[in-house]
Design a protein around this nucleic acid. Structure first.
Lengths: 152, 152
DNA sequence: CTGAATTACTTCAAATTTAAACTATTTGAA
DNA sequence: TTCAAATAGTTTAAATTTGAAGTAATTCAG
C-alpha cells in the first residue's frame, strides 16, 4: 500500500525518485562489481585504473575528486595498485607536495585488456533500457549530479 | 577531449550513462548523509528505520533485501538500533529460525520526527530538477533497477 | 622578507561492510 | 519416518572506508 501525500506532494515525489535512483545505482553497481572481481582487482582499484586510463596521469587529489573518495582511502588504493605494479607515483617537480599517479606499462596493458570486456558487461546491463532511455537517464543524472556537486 | 566509439557505440553510450548515474547517486547520497548524521544515526541505521517505519515489522532477511545489504551487516545494524531502544527483535512463533524486527515506541517517535525533516532535505536536493524531470528520472531508474534486480 | 594560513598527501584509529564459517531450524525426498 | 539439503540468522576475521591528526611544502598578507 503506497501512501500518498505523506510529506507533501513535492517531498513525496523527491523521495520516490531518490529511492529508485539509489536502488538502480546500487544494483547496477553490484552487478558490475561481480564482473570487476573476475579481473582480480577491487572496485576502488578498478575505478582508479579506469580514470587514469582515460584521463592520463593525475594527482592523488584529482583522483579523489573524480572517484568521490576520501584522501586516506585513495592513498591505500594507490599503495595496493603500486604493489601490483599497475601504477606508479611520480613526485611533481613543480610542487613538491604533489604526487602524480600514472599507469605503468603493465597497468596500461591490463587497462586495455579488461576495459573492452567490462564495457561489454556494462552495455549488456544497460540494454534493459532502449538507447533513447539510456540517453535520457544519462542526461537527467548528469544534470542532477552536476548541480549537486557544487553543494559538497 | 571526449573520445567517441572507443568501445563501440552501444558500449560508449552505456558507459557514459553508468558514470553519470553512479556519480549522481553518490553525490545525492553524500548530501543526504550529511542531513542524516544530524539526527545521530548512521546511514544504514536510518535506512532500516525508514523501511520499518514505512512497511511495518519485517524479518531480518527481508530488511537485508530491501536495503541491499549483507546479512552479517544487518545483524550489526539491528544490534545497534536495539541498544538505542529504537527497534526490538521479536522471535517468530511460526518459524523459530526467523526474527522479526519492529520499531519501538521510541523508534516510531524518532521516525515521525526526523522523517518530515529529511523529506524536506531530499525535496530540496531534488529541486534542481523540475517535477517532470524527477518523474522521468524516477521512472527510468525504476525500470533499470527492477530489471537488474532479477540478475542478482 | 616572514610567518600564519592553506594545500597535498600520509598515517592512524575507529567504524562499516562483506564473505565465510557456524548454529539452529525446517523442508522434502527416499 | 529419517536424514540430507536448504534456510534464517549470528559470529568471526579481514578488507574497505572514513575522518582526524600529522608532516611537508607553498602562498600570501603585512
Amino acid at each position: 500500500m503506497k501512501t500518498t501525500k505523506q510529506y507533501g506532494k513535492k517531498a513525496d515525489k523527491a523521495l520516490s525518485m531518490w529511492v529508485k535512483l539509489a536502488r538502480a545505482a546500487a544494483t547496477f553497481g553490484q552487478l558490475t562489481d561481480e564482473d570487476i572481481r573476475r579481473y582480480g582487482v577491487t572496485q576502488a582499484q578498478f575505478g582508479a585504473l579506469e580514470t587514469l586510463g582515460h584521463l592520463g596521469p593525475l594527482t592523488l587529489g584529482e583522483l579523489c575528486k573524480k572517484q568521490l573518495v576520501s584522501g586516506g582511502n585513495m592513498t591505500v588504493v594507490v599503495d595496493n595498485l603500486e604493489k601490483e605494479e599497475l601504477v606508479e607515483r611520480i613526485p611533481s617537480t613543480e610542487d613538491r607536495r604533489v604526487v602524480l599517479v600514472q599507469l605503468t606499462k603493465k597497468g596500461k596493458r591490463l587497462f586495455d585488456e579488461i576495459f573492452v570486456q567490462h564495457a561489454q558487461c556494462v552495455a549488456d546491463l544497460a540494454s534493459v533500457l532502449t538507447e533513447e532511455e539510456q540517453d535520457e537517464l544519462g542526461r537527467l543524472s548528469k544534470k542532477l549530479g552536476m548541480s549537486l556537486q557544487k553543494r559538497l
